[in-house]
Simulated scan of single mutants.
Amino acid sequence: MEHEQHLALLGASAQGDKQAFSKLYHATSKQLYAVCLKMLSSKELAEEALQEAYVRIWHNASEYRTGKGTVLTWMVSIVRYRALDILRYHKIRKEDELVENESFDLDTSEKISDSEQLLLDKCLQQLDLQQRQAIYLAYFNGCSHQEVVKHLNNPLGTIKSWIRRGLMSLQSCLTP
């Protein structure tokens, strides 16, 4: 149900419907902000990444393909790449001391409610160990697929499959 709503809003956004894009933003921004904040550990940088990601989503809405995953998964990948770009920028210029957080716990005070955190934790625990590790590394720690391959010592195709299946399981578990 949620995917169909996101798909309809993204399709309308691709046609230039600003109201549909606004609705899509309100439906997804909390989840995407949580990803940015976890990866960047800074409200200002997370807000910057989120804004840049939504600009990219607006401009590239017509490029979404249904066979490549859900709208939300597509949007998360855009957000992740923007956050990674910002991380690389700041690491190269050493403007900030951004240290990768080894903890997998989300700081719920700024992102999601306690009940949402509990549900997310419960859903994550239901995943296979390999899926959970791959998702933690990719989405919570901001590792690229290649970095996950090196860390888990498995082929790229296997890592991508674990992440894809894990995200599908999470979506099923988190969707009421």
Results as ranks from 00 to 15, higher is better:
Ile57Leu: 13
Gln133Gly: 04
Thr175Asp: 13
Gln5Leu: 07
Asp17Val: 06
Gln146Phe: 07
Leu40Asp: 05
Glu110Cys: 06
Phe21Met: 12
Leu152Ser: 06
Val55Ser: 01
Asp85Ile: 03
Pro155Lys: 08
Val148Leu: 02
Thr158Val: 09
Ser172Cys: 13
Leu106Gly: 06
Val71Gln: 01
Ala134Lys: 00
Cys173Trp: 04
Asp17Trp: 05
Glu52Asn: 10
Ala27Pro: 02
Arg93Lys: 07
Thr66Gly: 14
Lys43His: 15
Ala14Ser: 02
Cys143Trp: 10
Lys38Thr: 14
Ala27Cys: 04
Arg65His: 04
Asp114Asn: 15
Leu106Ala: 08
Ala138Tyr: 10
Lys111Trp: 13
Asp114Ala: 15
Leu167Gly: 08
Ser113Pro: 12
Glu100Asn: 09
Ser172Gln: 14
Ala12Glu: 14
Ala83Leu: 01
Gly11Trp: 09
Pro176Gly: 07
Tyr33Lys: 12
His26Met: 13
Ile112Pro: 09
Ser22Gly: 08
His90Cys: 09
His151Asn: 12
Lys23Arg: 11
Leu152Ile: 05
Leu152Met: 06
Asn154Pro: 04
Gln130Pro: 10
Ser113Arg: 04
Ala83Val: 02
Leu98Ala: 04
Leu7Phe: 10
Arg56Ala: 09
Lys68Asp: 08
Met1Tyr: 14
Thr70Trp: 01
Ala49Trp: 00
Thr73Pro: 09
Glu4Asn: 10
Leu129Thr: 10
His90Leu: 14
Gln15Pro: 03
Ser169Leu: 15
Asn154Leu: 08
Glu48Cys: 02
Glu48Asp: 08
Lys18Arg: 12
Thr158Tyr: 09
Glu97Phe: 03
Lys94Pro: 00
Ser13Gln: 05
Leu170Asn: 06
Leu118His: 13
Tyr54Arg: 01
Gln146Ser: 11
Ser113Leu: 05
Gln171Asp: 09
Val99Ala: 04
Gln19Glu: 12
Trp162Ala: 07
Leu129Pro: 10
Met39Glu: 04
Ser42Pro: 14
Asp107Arg: 11
Leu32His: 09
Glu95Val: 03
Ser169His: 15
Ser115Met: 15
Cys143Pro: 06
Lys23Val: 07
Lys91Leu: 10
Gln125His: 08
Met75Cys: 06
Gln31Ser: 11
Val79Ala: 07
Tyr25Gly: 00
Val148Asn: 04
Leu72Gly: 02
Leu127Gln: 03
Arg132Thr: 11
Lys122Arg: 12
Gly16Ala: 05
His90Phe: 10
Leu9Val: 12
Arg82Lys: 07
His26Gln: 14
Cys143His: 10
Thr66Asn: 07
Ile57Met: 14
Phe140Arg: 07
Leu50Trp: 01
Phe104Ala: 05
Glu63Val: 14
Ala61Gln: 03
Leu118Trp: 13
Ala27Gln: 11
Asn101Gly: 00
Asp121Cys: 14
Gln130Leu: 08
Val55Leu: 15
Leu32Phe: 06
Leu119Asn: 11
Val71Lys: 02
Ser109Gln: 05
Glu63Trp: 14
Glu147Arg: 08
Ile163Lys: 03
Ile86Leu: 05
